[in-house]
């Protein structure tokens, strides 16, 4: 009989530890800041679909972003943050602005990929705005062509931090989640 695969004891020991200690850390943080899971709206503003597939792979069982309290929703009106991919072509400028205006405050804009961050290879082209920052107020930029799913998760962690900043260090009063009164 062959010996056990070296990974299996490791996986078992991790399962024992993680359920109680590590496994809930990030989703606890999301719950603390928003009192619910973080809703993300993905907007394709003229990307080549590379970044879109990396975002899509976050929903696969291998990355499983829902276990962390993150989900992609179908409308910007439900969203806490907007993931914009692509360098914002002239045809999609108005669509991007309208999506941003439809989001409830405090909206977070995340530029995903080299094109969204600064134009990428399309920098200086007549038909693009040259990055999301020229159209919308960008809070987090995730460079990469495309960024790995892990890099996206890293950016979303920064976004959660930014949402907390906007909620607590702002003159406006935002109502998110259950009201305590």
């Amino acid at each position: 009989m062959s010996t056990l695969h070296p990974l299996i004891p490791m996986l078992q020991s991790r399962q024992d530890e993680d359920a109680s200690t590590l496994g809930q850390k990030f989703s606890d943080q999301v719950q603390r800041v928003l009192q619910r899971s973080m809703q993300i709206r993905h907007l394709d503003a003229g990307s080549c679909n590379g970044c879109d597939w990396e975002i899509q792979s976050l929903l696969c069982p291998a990355y499983d972003m829902q276990r962390l309290g993150l989900d992609i929703v179908a409308s910007p009106r439900h969203a806490d943050c907007l993931l914009v991919t692509g360098s914002v072509t002239r045809h999609l400028e108005i669509a991007a602005i309208r999506t941003w205006e439809a989001m409830p405050a405090p909206g977070i804009v995340i530029a995903v990929g080299a094109c969204a961050c600064g134009g990428g290879v399309l920098q200086g082209s007549y038909c693009t705005a040259g990055g999301v920052k020229n159209v919308l107020p960008v809070d987090i930029s995730i460079p990469g062509c495309p960024p790995r799913p892990q890099a996206l998760l890293h950016g979303l962690m920064l976004a959660l931090d930014r949402i907390e900043q906007k909620l607590h260090h702002s003159n406006h009063e935002f109502r998110i989640g259950r009201s305590e009164a």
Binding site: A62, Y63, D64, Q150, M157
Partner: peptide
Amino acid sequence: QSMRGRVGAHDYPL
């Protein structure tokens, strides 16, 4: 790996 046992999601952010 998947034949020998469960394959969980990546542990990345943790």
